[in-house]
């Protein structure tokens, strides 16, 4: 098993903290902004409490790799090199943001940073990830793509099509199911008659593996193995990361349908708490270090907000541009 170095452990900690800080901030703005003159257009879709899945998985990638992210993958986007500034431009729907203010919140893509453009239809990007993977093979690149989706999206026919397809062509894609137990208000038990999404891997002829989605090092190690297999030409793997959505589907949803007991039991498994314990146990960091990182990421997010909110809003002058590529 791949052991993480101290530097990597600390870097993962910073990503966990930065993602949490950024999303807490988004939550705060959504809760407190003037609805008549909102800073954030639309709602926030947060990964709070399940950051380790996105971060651990994306950390297993190299520069030439790609991701097809889902709703709760700001951690992965930060690892791919999108900055808090860019992500806030997207939330504020600014002209200089990744979608030029034409789309907002988590519906973004960034080709230069190898991030596909997410859409709202659940599971829709999974077959698109196959296309990137196919092109990598076609161009003889030793690279792979992570296709993220949730337990809810796993019920979509297109996800089954895509997994079968990827297995048939042995595409270098790793399917990451962040099983956070809830599809908006529908619990897992009402979504599928099986316990593990990973069990479906066998039916496509690919390994299906399960890991604790709240342990960043475990997600990393599990995904890294799948990434290496994919890059060796061994085909896709379905990795199911067991986690819990600790917020509503969006910032408008107070998730009253989730019991207090369920929340309380998962709070004890908070991925940041877990990682702090691990860092202390390994002797890599102490409380003072954590405080320092918390302060750093907080000021990074605040600075990004101040900067992003002063950027230009989209103009109707350019509204008709780009429906088609000119050349």
């Amino acid at each position: 098993m791949e052991q993480l170095t101290k530097k990597q452990h600390l870097e993962l900690y910073r990503y966990l903290r930065l993602t949490r800080a950024l999303e807490d901030w988004i939550f705060y703005i959504c809760a407190n902004q003037n609805p008549q003159k909102p800073l954030i257009i639309g709602k926030g879709y947060l990964s709070t409490g399940q950051e380790a899945t996105s971060i651990g998985a994306a950390y297993a990638l190299e520069k030439e790799d790609w991701i097809a992210q889902s709703h709760r993958d700001f951690g992965a986007l930060l690892i791919r090199g999108l900055t808090p500034r860019e992500l806030l431009l997207q939330y504020f729907s600014k002209e200089t943001g990744p979608t030029k203010g034409r789309d907002a919140n988590v519906h973004l893509g960034h080709t230069g940073k190898h991030v596909l453009g997410f859409i709202s239809h659940m599971g829709a990007m999974v077959p698109v990830a196959n296309g990137v993977a196919f092109a990598m093979k076609y161009k003889k690149k030793k690279a792979c793509i992570l296709a993220f989706f949730g337990d809810g999206a796993s019920s979509q026919g297109i996800v089954h099509e895509a997994m079968n397809y990827a297995a048939v062509f042995k595409l270098p894609v790793v399917f990451i199911c962040n099983n956070n137990r809830w599809a908006i208000s529908t619990p897992l038990e009402e979504q599928m008659a099986i316990k593990n999404v990973a069990d479906r891997g066998a039916s496509y002829g690919m390994p299906g593996v399960i890991c604790d989605g709240n342990k960043v090092e475990e997600v990393y190690q599990t995904v890294l193995k799948a990434v290496r297999l994919a890059k060796k030409g061994g085909g896709p793997t379905l990795v199911e990361c067991k986690t819990m959505r600790m917020s509503g589907h969006g910032t408008h949803d107070r998730a009253k349908y989730v019991s207090d007991q369920e929340i309380a039991s998962w709070k004890k498994k908070d991925p940041i708490m877990h990682h702090e314990k691990l860092l202390k146990k390994l002797g890599y960091a102490d409380e003072a270090y954590f405080k320092k990182i918390i302060a750093e990421v907080k000021s990074e997010v605040e600075e990004a907000t101040q900067w992003a909110k002063n950027q230009a809003d989209p103009s109707i002058q350019n509204q008709l541009e780009d429906v088609f590529a000119r050349s």
Partner: peptide, 25 residues
């Protein structure tokens, strides 16, 4: 490599087309 049968999955076929085009094919 350049002339390929696929499973009966039109959604996956057009999905592939999008991803492959993003990658430069």
């Amino acid at each position: 490599k350049r002339v390929r049968n696929t499973p009966l999955s039109e959604g996956a076929i057009l999905g592939e087309a999008i991803g492959a085009a993003v990658y430069g094919l």
